[in-house]
Amino acid sequence: MECREPEPRHCRELADRISAYLDGELDAAGRRELEEHLGACLECACCVETLRRTIALCRWAAPQPIPEEFSRRLDALLERLVVAP
């Protein structure tokens, strides 16, 4: 599973495509090439997993509920908008 013969240049080229890979935006050939490499190169596999997790954390941490006080002000704004002639 270890990358005994690392080919840094190849890794670097593939690293640029990791986001596209995670987003399902690589074509079949590109995906196959990357997946074959991931099976053989622990470093790149690690890159993929940490990036995947980064996106998940971002998605999970983002939502922010509207504070009640602001919610009341939004209602007031709405009132003015829809009632005004």
């Binding site: 840094p8 690293a15 622990l42 470093e43 690690c46 890159c47 995947r52 997790r53």
Partner: peptide
């Protein structure tokens, strides 16, 4: 540029991932 080398030092995918 640092990317592959840096993770090479990590023996496996880190726990947080």
């Amino acid at each position: 540029k640092r990317l592959p080398e840096e993770t090479a030092r990590t023996a496996a995918v880190p726990l947080w991932a």
